[in-house]
Amino acid sequence: MNRLARAALLLTGLALPALPIAAQHAHHQAPNPASAIAAAVAAPSRTPDNSVRDRYRHPAQTLGFFGITPTQTVVEYAPGGGWYTEILAPLLRDHGTFYALQPTGRGLDGYKGFLAAKPAIYDKVKLIAFPDDTATIPAGSVDTVLTFRNIHNMVMGGTEAATFKAFYAMLEPGGTLGIVDHRLPESRDSALEKTSGYLKVSTVRRIAQAAGFEFAGASEVNANPKDTADWEKGVWTLPPTLRNGEVDKAKYLAVGESDRMTLKFRKPLK
């Protein structure tokens, strides 16, 4: 074997280990966001009663619109019974960070029990009491803050300005605030926002922009034209609450869950 042949053989031998290393590196890369979201939505660990409501809440399209990826640091404000936690926790478990920012005294103990029931899935969820322990989330460290059907509670309780200020502080410059809530037609009396559970889009935009956010877009993915938003017992007349019980239940089930705005805001880069 001549010198050139021996050199070629040596180089070939040195190159061989590079293939499994490259393959291993690719294996540890975060998955495609759309595929990862789809897998989390389809996860068998989700509660069947929750999965049935996907047709009203469109979680894959909603999270896609908000730009969620498996590598992000995400805060969900007031996760309540954990409907979106069932999706977000496994989605972010391996490559991202998930904070559950639950208001003190508003289902906090119940949410703790929800997490404890499936430790293999929820062991990395960082549960933070709001507003008591909010400062444990480093300022400017969050990619996305999400809240689903909670702004109306803030408005009814008069806490919207302080809560949005907290959102703004924890988000990094350029970070996203994603909001879904029950939509009140702009022509209706604004006084209904204090009692009905519905809000005008203009009201939510005003609150967000007063806190310093820029409007970044809207989606109709959670719209429901069957919802007239004029129910005697507010949005809670409709499923899933069905406040009238068996009275006209079939009628309200036929309407489905509420008509919802899906809004995206950004914290300015400067």
Rank of each mutant, 00 (worst) to 15 (best):
R57H: 06
R57I: 00
R57L: 10
H58V: 03
H58G: 13
P59S: 03
P59H: 00
P59K: 08
A60R: 11
Q61A: 15
L63H: 12
G64R: 02
F65S: 01
F65H: 02
F66C: 03
F66Y: 10
F66K: 07
G67L: 03
G67E: 01
G67Q: 06
I68H: 00
I68L: 13
I68S: 02
T69Q: 12
T69N: 08
P70G: 02
P70C: 06
T71K: 10
Q72M: 15
Q72G: 10
Q72A: 09
T73W: 06
T73V: 14
T73Y: 01
T73R: 04
V74Q: 00
V75T: 03
V75Q: 02
E76S: 09
E76P: 11
E76H: 07
Y77H: 08
Y77K: 05
Y77L: 04
Y77F: 15
Y77S: 09
A78D: 06
A78Q: 08
A78K: 07
A78R: 05
P79Q: 12
P79C: 06
P79N: 07
P79D: 10
P79E: 02
G80E: 08
G80L: 01
G81H: 08
G81Y: 07
G81F: 05
G81T: 15
G82V: 05
G82A: 11
G82C: 03
Y84N: 04
Y84F: 15
Y84W: 11
T85A: 07
T85M: 09
T85I: 02
E86H: 07
E86K: 04
E86V: 15
I87L: 09
L88T: 06
L88A: 10
A89G: 00
A89L: 01
P90T: 14
P90Q: 13
P90W: 02
L92G: 07
L92K: 03
L92P: 05
R93W: 09
R93D: 15
R93C: 11
D94G: 13
D94S: 12
D94K: 12
H95T: 14
H95P: 12
H95V: 05
G96K: 09
G96Y: 03
G96E: 09
G96D: 13
G96V: 03
T97Y: 03
T97Q: 09
T97C: 07
T97M: 07
T97K: 13
F98Q: 05
Y99I: 11
A100P: 08
L101R: 06
L101N: 14
L101P: 07
L101C: 01
Q102V: 07
Q102I: 07
Q102G: 13
Q102N: 11
P103A: 01
P103V: 11
P103F: 04
T104R: 13
T104D: 15
T104N: 09
T104P: 13
T104Y: 10
T104V: 14
T104A: 15
T104C: 10
G105L: 07
G105S: 11
G105Y: 14
R106Y: 14
R106W: 09
R106T: 12
R106D: 15
R106C: 08
R106V: 15
G107W: 05
G107L: 04
G107E: 12
G107I: 07
G107V: 13
G107C: 12
L108F: 11
L108C: 11
D109I: 13
D109P: 09
D109H: 14
D109C: 08
D109L: 11
G110Q: 15
G110S: 05
Y111Q: 10
Y111I: 03
Y111W: 04
K112Y: 01
K112L: 08
K112A: 12
